[in-house]
Design a protein around this nucleic acid. Sequence first.
DNA 1: TTTGGAATATTTACAGTGTTAACTAAATTT
DNA 2: AAATTTAGTTAACACTGTAAATATTCCAAA
Lengths: 217, 217
Amino acid sequence: MGIAERKEKQKTEIRKRILDASMKLFVEEGFNNVSIRRIADIIEYSPTTIYLYFKDKDEIFFNLHEIGFQKMQEMNKNLDDIKNPLLRLHKMGENYVHFGMENPEYYDLMFIQPEPMQKLTEMGCEWENGDAALTRLRNTVVECMEKGYIANTDPIVLSLSIWSTVHGLVSLATRQRLDKLVSEKDNVLPMIMHSLNWLINILDISGKGTGGQPSGE
Amino acid sequence: MGIAERKEKQKTEIRKRILDASMKLFVEEGFNNVSIRRIADIIEYSPTTIYLYFKDKDEIFFNLHEIGFQKMQEMNKNLDDIKNPLLRLHKMGENYVHFGMENPEYYDLMFIQPEPMQKLTEMGCEWENGDAALTRLRNTVVECMEKGYIANTDPIVLSLSIWSTVHGLVSLATRQRLDKLVSEKDNVLPMIMHSLNWLINILDISGKGTGGQPSGE
DNA sequence: TTTGGAATATTTACAGTGTTAACTAAATTT
DNA sequence: AAATTTAGTTAACACTGTAAATATTCCAAA
C-alpha cells in the first residue's frame, strides 16, 4: 500500500502549494488580486488543475481561514502558564490584537470576509473554529467570575462584548478607519492597547488594574 | 445663465441615477455583483458613459459611503431631545446598531470596505464624515463625565472603546460570525442589545443602569 | 510486455469584469 | 453657417472564474 500512500502525500503536497501560493498573493497584493490564473503561475500548473484539488476559489479561502485559526492557537500557547485568569484574559486580548494587526490577511478571512462563512453554510457545517475560540474566551470569563476577579453577569453576553471590543479595534484599524482619526499613524497600536487596558480595568472588580487581588475570597 | 444651470441639474440628475442603480444592485445582489455594465443596463446608458460622471468604480462607492453617513445622521435626529447624556449615549448606541443591522450595505461602505478609504488617501483628504461622527460621540462622552454619569478617563480612549464595541457587534453580526454561535438566528439582535446594555451599565457610575441619577453633583 | 483503464493535467471555450481610445452626433458658441 | 465643445457610443484590451473536451501519465492485470 506504499504507493497509494505516496499518492496521497503528493496530493496534499500540491494542495499545500496551492494554499501557500494563494496566501502569498493575498499578502502581497490583496484579496482582490488573488486569481486562479496567478496561483497557477506560481505553482507552475495550468489554471484548471487547481480545480482538481479545490472545488472552487472560495474553498481555498476557507482552508486559509482554518490555517489562520491554527496560527492563532499556536500564538495562544503563552497563555498556559498564566494562573491568574484576569491576567490571562488580558493577555488573550493582547494576543488577539497582535495577531490581527500582524496578520491582517488571515484575520480578514477569519472574521471579516464573507466567503468562509458562505462555504460553511454550503457544507451545512458548524463554525467549529469560531465556536472553540469563543468557548475558550467564555471559560476564562467564567473562571474570572468564580474567583471573584470580575463581576457576575451572563458569561455569554460578556464574552460577546469582549470579543466585539477587540474585534472592533482590530477591524477598524486594519480597514483604515483609525488612520485618519488618530493623529499619527504610529499611534494607532498604542491607542488600541490603551483601549484594551480600559476594557480590562473596567472589568476588574478590584478597580486596581490587572494583577490586583481578587475581591471576593 | 439658465441654460448652464439646467445642464448642471441634468448632470447631477444622472449622477444620482447612477448612484441609485449602484445601491440597488449592491443591496439586491451584494458588493461583488455591482458591475459597471449592470449599472449601465439599469440607467439605460452605455457602460462607458458612467466614466463621464465618475472617475472609476471606487468613486461611486465613495459617494455611496457619504450618503450612508447622511442617512445615519438623519436617524440620529431623535437624540436632540434627550437631555440626560448617558441616556443619549445609550440611544446613540441603539441607533448605531439598528442602522448597521438594517442597512448592512451602507454600513459596509462606511466602516468595512477598504475602497472609500483608498479613495480618500488618493484624494489626500481627511475622513470628514468619520471625524464628525467620532467627535459627536466624544462630546457626549465628555458631557457624561462632566455631569458625573460616568467615571473620568481619557475621552478619546473611551470613545474609541465604545465605538469599537458597537462596531464589533454589528460587523460580526453582518459578516455572519454570530449566526453559527448564537443558538437561533432570531436571537442575534437581542443578544447584541444585551451586550450594548452591558456596556452602558458598566459605564454608569451609579451602577443603577441607564437613567440613574448622576453620582457627583 | 503489452493492454486497458483510472488518475492527472492541459487546451479550449464561455460569459463575464474594469477601463481606455477612437469615433459619432448633438448642442452651443463664434 | 462654421467651428468647437459636450455627450454618448462602439470596439478593444487585458483580465476574471470555471466547465467540457481532450491529452498525457501512471499503474495493475492479462
